[in-house]
């Protein structure tokens, strides 16, 4: 093998490296800073609104994993009362089919994506844990929620000013300390 152009490749590589010295960094120091996620994010969390749920179990039927467990009894006003609504996040693939199929918009995906647990049993969410107390529902298949969420930060606009409103790449600073403990 002849090395005809020996050195040119290295020079070109160095030129590109040199160019990058003058570019703003695009790295994000997770978990100290976080980008704004998509408004339709299918995070590792589901949000269930008990007041809207009729116990029809359409969501359970549409789940590919057979993941949602619902038990109901007939109440006084000839309605279904949901006794049990359980969802095993360890088996869930967060595909969103249950959310899409719910006819009463009683189920939504959540924004949070940090749901790691030490025990598998902790991944099973009961009726109480699924309620929207400290959760943020995401706009997946829910256009009204989507409209209210902040816009996603996009790398394609980088650090340069964006066309509309001149927003910068937004970073949400978290705690100053590295790592958050257990």
């Amino acid at each position: 093998m002849k090395f005809e152009r020996y050195g040119i490749g290295i020079a070109k590589g160095m030129a590109i490296t040199f160019k990058h010295l003058f570019r703003p960094p695009i790295t994000v120091q997770y978990p100290e800073e976080k980008l704004v996620v998509s408004r339709r994010i299918r995070g590792n969390e589901l949000v269930w609104f008990p007041d809207r749920c009729t116990g029809c179990a359409t969501c359970a039927k549409s789940c590919p994993q057979g993941n949602i467990e619902i038990a109901t009894h007939v109440g006084s006003e000839n309605n279904y009362v949901v006794d049990k609504f359980e969802l095993d996040a360890g088996r869930c693939m967060f595909c969103g089919l249950c959310v899409e199929s719910c006819p009463y918009e009683a189920l939504a995906m959540g924004v949070s994506y940090e749901q790691a647990q030490y025990r598998r049993g902790d991944l099973v969410w009961s009726k109480e844990e699924l309620q929207p107390l400290n959760k943020r529902p995401s706009g997946y298949a829910r256009p009204e929620i989507e409209a209210a969420l902040p816009k996603q930060s996009l790398l394609i606009y980088g650090d340069k000013e964006r066309d509309e409103g001149g927003q910068k790449l937004r970073l949400i600073p978290l705690s100053k300390k590295r790592g958050r403990g257990v």
Partner: peptide
């Protein structure tokens, strides 16, 4: 990856996830 990341951002915007789009 820098360019792929831009595309993944767009996929995330459309369907909510970056790898398993469904």
């Amino acid at each position: 990856w820098r360019e792929r990341e831009k595309l993944l951002d767009l996929f995330e915007m459309v369907c909510g996830q970056r790898l398993t789009y469904n």
